[in-house]
Write a protein that binds this DNA or RNA. Structure first.
Length: 380
RNA sequence: UCCUCAGUAGCUCAAUGGUAGAGCAUUCGGCUGUUAACCGAAGGGUUGUAGGUUCGAGUCCUACCUGAGGAG
């Protein structure tokens, strides 16, 4: 039995975009989908009701490393699993800790067996292996588990990228084997996605994808993007693997991107994305609108009575002015983060809904042209 | 009227007689599988005023101005 089942419902005749349905144990997800990031079992600033009822989010990301370190996966298992712990009835995808290889690069050592992290909280050592990260994610009760990978920084040499990528492939095989054993006779459905690496080298990306396809996984991720490389390279790396990754499985581009890039990934065959930008930037005063960005602390918004985005129907935009939000931001008020996050996440989800509608209406190519034009105008 | 204390960036305050700084505020930039309600940059000064001592004064001396407290 597959842990998740993917069904393509419409395809763009001009690009590689497709609309689909991802069936998970915790609901059906319309794709392409944007997954808000809830690293520590919370999308910072938002409640379950905000996310589910107000924003209509159907899948969230959580993080294996962070929840393992605190409060501990065994505690969460004891309390009924992550869904119950965080009162989230929809789907959850958990990152493996592979990104922490990048983001906590000063606190870890990589070996053939896995990664030893020095806890960022108390410095204690913790061994992460392909097998142990599967176990932790199963303890959490994640719907979609990610295989342990190494997310290398940019730039790295072709030689290092190859070594690293090949190790990630070996880890993916070990994780997959362990996962299949753990799933034997299991009543609950889970999926394990391996992750394509290879830094910014198309040949390594292809080699990696080819090796991972042999695992016949429920879905595939492209990782190692947005680690400091020039923007066009990230899209090129997705392009390099699109033809290799099976078209009847969901493809997940990890950790991307800016609003105007979402359609670009979809156009290259991507079905799932996640990114901290809407949530983190919201808290830091950077708001996404249909007419470009708003940096709310700018003095020009001091007495601006308009909503963040006049076209937005979110909770924040239907009630509050830019002037008020700026005041809250400048005052360091908690409500600012709540309202801003609520808007930014809504913006990302709206974009993805628009993309999906366009694919189904057979007008995605036009949609993409509009996005590119608007993006060029904003930049120019 | 006298005594004491204090006057340094918009604010609160640092600075052995030796290149006037910090925090906050202001303005701007950054953030991409969250160590991030975070990080960074810039602008901003006749050191209350006028003299004096000194190679050199925010710092020591004198007078005055302003404020706070006290005495009468």
């Amino acid at each position: 039995m597959r842990g998740v089942k993917f069904e393509v419902v419409a395809e763009c005749p001009e690009t590689r975009a497709r609309a689909g349905l991802l069936h998970t144990p915790h609901g059906v997800i319309e794709t392409p989908v944007f997954m808000p990031v809830g690293t520590q079992a919370t999308v910072k600033g938002l409640s379950e009701r905000d996310l589910d009822e107000d924003l209509g989010a159907r899948i969230l990301l959580a993080n294996t490393y962070h929840l393992y370190i605190r409060p501990g996966h065994e505690l969460i298992r004891k309390l009924g699993g992550l869904h119950r712990f965080m009162a989230w009835k929809n789907a959850i995808l958990t990152d493996s800790g592979g990104f922490q290889v990048f983001s906590l690069s000063g606190l870890r050592k990589i070996s053939e067996h896995g990664v030893v992290f020095q806890s960022h909280l108390d410095g204690s050592p913790h061994q992460f292996t392909p097998q142990s990260t599967v176990d932790v994610q199963l303890a959490l009760g994640s719907d979609i588990l990610m295989a342990l990978d190494e997310c290398p920084e940019y730039p790295v040499s072709h030689e290092y990228a190859r070594e690293s990528m090949q190790r990630t492939v070996r880890w993916a095989r070990q994780a997959d084997e362990h996962f299949r054993k753990r799933m034997e006779g299991s009543q609950t459905g889970h999926a394990l996605f391996p992750i394509v690496q290879g830094s910014m080298f198309p040949d390594l990306r292809r080699e990696c994808a080819q090796a991972l396809v042999e695992l016949d996984a429920d879905g595939y991720a492209v990782g190692g993007l947005s680690v400091g490389e020039p923007r066009p390279l990230s899209l090129e790396m997705v392009e390099a693997t699109e033809q290799i990754l099976p078209s009847d499985r969901p493809r997940y581009a990890m950790g991307v991107g800016m609003p105007a890039e979402l359609a670009e990934y979809v156009a290259r065959g991507i079905d799932m994305m996640d990114c901290v930008l809407p949530s983190r930037n919201a808290r830091n005063g950077y708001l996404f609108t249909s007419a470009g960005r708003i940096i709310i602390k700018h003095a020009r918004y001091r007495d601006d009575e308009r909503p963040i985005d006049e076209k937005c129907k979110c909770y924040t935009c239907t009630r509050y002015s830019r002037a008020y939000l700026r005041h809250l931001f400048q005052s360091g008020e908690i409500l600012y983060a709540v309202l801003a996050t609520r808007h930014n996440i809504r913006r990302y989800l709206d974009i993805m809904h628009g993309i999906r509608r366009a694919i189904i209406a057979n007008s995605f190519a036009d949609y993409l042209r509009c996005v590119r034009q608007a993006s060029a105008e904003e930049a120019g």
